[in-house]
Amino acid sequence: MSPLLEIENLKVSYGTIEVLHGISCCLDAGDIICLLGSNGAGKTTMLKAISGILKIDSGAIRFKGTSIIDVAAPQRVSKGLVHCPEGRGIFPNLSVWENLQLGAYSRKDKHAIQRDIQRGLEWFPILEDRLSQLAGTLSGGEQQMLAMARAVMAHPQLLLLDEPSLGLAPQMIESVFEKIKLINREGVTILLVEQNAQVALEISKFAYVLETGNLILQGPSETLLNDSSIKKAYLGEAILP
């Protein structure tokens, strides 16, 4: 089976400063894949390049076997590539229900949208009582739930999740990761960028480690969990007994 997403020698710059220096990787359909790295390593830049909101310098990005370099960001959504950005990217000036509606903006099958909103509410029951509330009035965790529920409305095949646990309370983080697993079980491949390396490696199947714009390590998450250099750099072995 050919991979869902293939990236070859991807280079991206902000102005004259090159941030990604030639990344190559492959994501298989059906998996949760995590992308680890410290601040400023280029994780968010990589997601933005994949979703098309950043122009790339060179390299190839193939989604389902065809190049998407020339496909504008909004059209990538209708191809099944959805990016849930850091800071959640919900529209605070719109109601929860309206946010969910907009999640389905790229879809043609308008009649199925209401049914999918119902399904979204079953998956994310926390939103049920908040439908008419402005999204900006939700708590951080609820906003993250809304961001994921909205992303699923687009029927993604690949979901890019940027720091979904950022700034959330511990119980909420746990709940967010439960939802990530649930979305994955429904057949959505997930590329997860996470600061919380321990949990990310636990729920993912494969992992990449990005450092100052280069992929320095990759492998099955299980292997990386036991890798001593990873433990040192990201799992805080020195602090934990």
Partner: peptide, 21 residues
Amino acid sequence: QLGRAMRAISYSHEMAMLVGI
């Protein structure tokens, strides 16, 4: 949906692009 898209864009062009607008 058009009006919702307008309001989404008035919040942020980039976030609007990410839902396919």
